[in-house]
Nucleic acid binder design. Structure first.
Length: 384
RNA sequence: GGAGGGGUGGCCGAGCGGUCAAUGGCAGCAGACUGUAAAUCUGCCCUCUUCGGAGUUCGAAGGUUCGAAUCCUUCCCCCUCCA
C-alpha cells in the first residue's frame, strides 16, 4: 500500500520528525489530532480548530453511521465539505465503541451488533461495512475495524481479542479501496502483553498497511504499563510508516510516547476537559471551577498565544464556567487545543534540533498532572 | 374586622407520632475525565470528630406522649379571599 506518502525528516533517539501527505493536505508529525466524533470538534468552529495549529481531525464511524448516516454525508459531498474541514480527516472505525458501549452490543466473528445509544435501533458493524462507511465519509485515513480490548484482561482473553482483531484487520484490508492520497491503518492489539503485541504487529505487517496504530492502551493500565507496552511494540513496527497511538493522552503521555517513536495521537482530553473546566497549561493543570480563580485578573497561561489567554482573565473564565455559559467551554477548549498543538510543535522542533531529551526531562521533573501554581499564596477563600 | 392557608438546614421544597440530622433540586466546596452514550460524572455540604460516632436542630414558648418537624395551647410573622 502506498496511498499515503510518509517522509522521515529527522530523528532524535527513537523519536521521529515526519511528514504525512494525504489527499487533503499534509500533516507534520509528531501530530495531535483533535477529536471531532460527530463531525464537530465540540465547542469549536473548524476555522478555530485550524487556528490552534491542528492539521487533521478525527471523526467517528459509529456515531456518523447512526446520525446523520454515511450515505447521506456521501450524498452531500463527503465529510470535508459537510463539516467545513478542508484538511485531512482520520476516522475511527467504531472499534472503540466495541469497548465503550459494551452493554449495548453483541460481538461475534462476523462483526458487532450495536443497539443505538440514540434510539435503540439495531446496527451491524462488520469490518467490510466499517471500511465502506469510512469510504463514504471520504476519510483520508481509514482505521481497520478492531476490538479495543478492555483492561484488565487475562493473557488468554487478550490473545482471543487480538486474534479476532487480526482477522478483522485482514478483512478490513481486503475491503479497503486503494486510492492515491488515501490510506488504511492497521491496529496492534494485545493488551499489556509484549509477546501478543509482537505477534499482532507481525500479523499486520504481513498484510501491509499505510500506517500502524497502537490500540487498547490508556484504558486503565496506568502510565508505566502503557509506556512499557509501547516500548515492546515499537521495534516491531516498520520505520518508514507512521505510528499512531490511539486515544492518548495527557501532555506528559504525548511527550513520553514521542520519545518512544510514536508519530500521531488523538485524545478527547483537551476538548472534554475544556468542557469540564480543566485547563492544561505550561505550569500545570487548573480547575477553573475553583474559587481561588474568582478574583484572579491574570491570564490562564501567560505564555499562551490563544484568545482565552490573551483577552480574558482567570476570573472571567471562572465566572463563565460557574455560570455554565457556553463561552467558557469554547474558550477553555480553544486554549487546551492550542496548548496541545504548541506542545507538538515544540516536540517537532526539539527533534529537529536533537534536543528532545530536554523536554522529556522537563515533563518528568514537573509531572504536569500536579498543579504547579506560581501564585500558590493567592487569595484563599478567606471567610470573614 | 371576618374566613382560610402557611412558617423545615444559604434558597426552593418533601416529610405530617418512632425506621429523621430530616427525600429532592439549586447554590456552594472539592475531585475525576485518555480511538467522546460526557456543556458529564463522583464526593462533601448544622457543629465537633480518633470518621466508629457524639452534640444541638424543623418561627418562639409551653404542653401531651416511652418517643414530636409531625398532636395540643398561647404568642410572633407571612400569604390569599371577604368586608
Amino acid at each position: 500500500m502506498t496511498g499515503l506518502r510518509f517522509e522521515l525528516l529527522a530523528r532524535d533517539g527513537r523519536a521521529r520528525r515526519g511528514r504525512l501527505s494525504t489527499a487533503h493536505g499534509t500533516i507534520e508529525t509528531p501530530a495531535f489530532m483533535p477529536v471531532g466524533t460527530a463531525a464537530t470538534v465540540k465547542a469549536m468552529t473548524p476555522e478555530d480548530v485550524r487556528a490552534t495549529g491542528a492539521e487533521i481531525v478525527l471523526c467517528n464511524t459509529y456515531h456518523l453511521m447512526l446520525r446523520p448516516g454515511a450515505e447521506r454525508i456521501a450524498k452531500l459531498g463527503g465529510l470535508h465539505k459537510f463539516m467545513n474541514w478542508p484538511g485531512p480527516i482520520l476516522t475511527d472505525s467504531g472499534g472503540y465503541q466495541v469497548m465503550s458501549l459494551a452493554e449495548l452490543r453483541k460481538i461475534d466473528e462476523e462483526g458487532v451488533r450495536f443497539q443505538s445509544h440514540l434510539d435503540g435501533s439495531k446496527h451491524l458493524l462488520t469490518p467490510e461495512r466499517s471500511i465502506e462507511i469510512q469510504r463514504l465519509l471520504d476519510a483520508d485515513i481509514t482505521m481497520a475495524f478492531d476490538e479495543c480490548t478492555p483492561y484488565p484482561a487475562t493473557e488468554a482473553q487478550a490473545e482471543d481479542s487480538m486474534r479476532l482483531s487480526m482477522r478483522w484487520a485482514e478483512r478490513s484490508r481486503r475491503a479497503f479501496v486503494e486510492r492515491p492520497g488515501y490510506g488504511l491503518f492497521g491496529i496492534v492489539q494485545g493488551s499489556v502483553f509484549a509477546p501478543l503485541r509482537a505477534q499482532s504487529a507481525k500479523a499486520l505487517l504481513d498484510l501491509g498497511f499505510d500506517g500502524y496504530a497502537i490500540g487498547g492502551l490508556a484504558v486503565g493500565e496506568g502510565t508505566a504499563l502503557m509506556l512499557s507496552t509501547i516500548e515492546a511494540t515499537e521495534p516491531h513496527l516498520p520505520a518508514d510508516r507512521p505510528r499512531y497511538l490511539m486515544g492518548v493522552g495527557k501532555p506528559s503521555d504525548l511527550v513520553a510516547a514521542v520519545a518512544r517513536g510514536v508519530d500521531m495521537f488523538d485524545c478527547v482530553l483537551p476538548t472534554r476537559s475544556g468542557r469540564t473546566a480543566q485547563a492544561f497549561t505550561r505550569h500545570g493543570t487548573l480547575n477553573l471551577r475553583n474559587a481561588r480563580h474568582a478574583e484572579d485578573a491574570g491570564p490562564l497561561d501567560p505564555d499562551c498565544r490563544c484568545p482565552a489567554c490573551r483577552n480574558y482573565s482567570r476570573a472571567y473564565l471562572q465566572h463563565l464556567v460557574k455560570a455554565n455559559e457556553i463561552l467558557g467551554a469554547m474558550l477553555l477548549t480553544r486554549h487546551n487545543l492550542t496548548y496541545y498543538q504548541d506542545l507538538m510543535a515544540e516536540l517537532r522542533a526539539a527533534i529537529e534540533a536533537g534536543r528532545l531529551a530536554e523536554i522529556v526531562a522537563r515533563f518528568e521533573r514537573t509531572a504536569p498532572e500536579e498543579p504547579q501554581e506560581p501564585d500558590a499564596e493567592a487569595p484563599q477563600t478567606a471567610r470573614r
